[in-house]
Design a protein around this nucleic acid. Structure first.
Lengths: 206, 206
DNA sequence: GTCTATAATGGGATAGAC
DNA sequence: GTCTATCCCATTATAGAC
């Protein structure tokens, strides 16, 4: 593990941290465990990062960005708003089943940040990105389905984050995708009714 | 701190653990910190509990029971099912505002249990009690309002737990009760529509 | 830049005096 | 039963040889 730019090693340590923490939890992500997972000696960790908290900062920011891109990629046109939303939910549940540890780590990091003064601001930032993702997703879904939302977007976005958060915490306990989907479906069918046909938004018409 | 029955000291240690962890997080609830909070020396901790995990077991069971009783106490007759549910939600938000650390600890303990083989079963048990509480609450609310649910109770109960879980995780980040209530209100208005007037359930009629 | 070795701290648990 | 003292381990972080 000789020649490697400082940035490359930082990236490798972040990836290693995510692997360890997804597998065994944030608490198990000690500097030693992360360095070992990355195939480096402990001293290299502290050569690349001033402290464990500095790595955690970058890790949270990185993960929030990944979630954001995943949400963006999840949107596909459906027959109507109900189908469009349902596809997005199915995409999320599929991701959740494939990477349970990944979503679990996001909760653990958030709770750790909430309790750590040095990282407290990241808890806010994490959810700011969630709300942004939800807003983007709802806006895109409405456009694809040719409808407009009848509830103010901030309320709607918070509802979506609330539902996804709750669905995730419950799923993480029993891994029961069918029941999770059933609960989400009932709620989504309702969300889909909070729309009206769009007055076709022409080229900047009055 | 002389004369005190073993049971009393166990109870006192559990209470101390809850205080410390509510204030500073589960991770800060070391055996030393808990013993100090209870005004005991460390050795007393291990005289009362075989290990820290044994205390955590009892703590989770105790807390789940408290939440259960709180849910039971929250029910009051309202003008209709919508009002009845809204009162229950207001009661919960009030509790959340008064004891943020308490709800935070429940999440932290659940996540800790999910990652700790020795405590893994408690994560299931915790949510089993949540679902039971939700079922009880929904059943009572319907009775008080004279309606019947039109969706199977398991799905309905999971929806409620999902909404409360999500509302709590989001609230814990920004402590924005108004926005949390706004999101819940929209969803609850919907839940209230999933009913039909009850065919008066006389004395065991056919 | 990279590694070995170690400092400094704090944790869970227990031995053994009283 | 209760306390002091301590064991033993893991952690973050760094000093200093190469």
């Amino acid at each position: 593990m000789a020649r490697m730019s400082a940035d490359a090693r930082r990236a490798e340590l972040l990836a290693a941290a995510l692997r360890v923490m997804s597998r065994d939890g944030v608490a198990a992500g000690t500097t030693r465990a992360i360095a070992a997972e990355a195939g480096m000696v402990l001293a290299t960790f502290h050569y690349c990062f001033r402290s464990r908290n500095e790595l955690l900062r970058e890790l949270i920011i990185m993960l929030a960005g990944i979630e954001r891109e995943a949400a963006r990629a999840a949107m596909q046109p459906g027959r109507n708003i109900r189908e469009t939303l349902r596809q997005a939910v199915d995409g999320y549940l599929e991701h959740l089943e494939k990477n349970p540890g990944h979503e679990q780590v996001l909760f653990e990091l958030n709770h750790h940040a909430l309790r750590t003064p040095e990282l407290r601001d990241l808890a806010d930032e994490q959810y700011r990105q969630y709300y942004e993702s939800a807003t983007m997703l709802l806006t895109t879904a409405a456009e694809l389905a040719g409808v407009e939302w009848q509830v103010e977007m901030p309320v709607l976005a918070r509802m979506v984050v609330t539902m996804i958060d709750g669905a995730t915490t419950t799923w993480l306990v029993d891994h029961d995708t069918d029941r999770t989907r059933a609960a989400l479906d009932v709620m989504l069918d309702y969300v889909a009714t909070l729309t009206k046909p769009a007055r076709r938004p022409r080229q900047g018409s009055a």
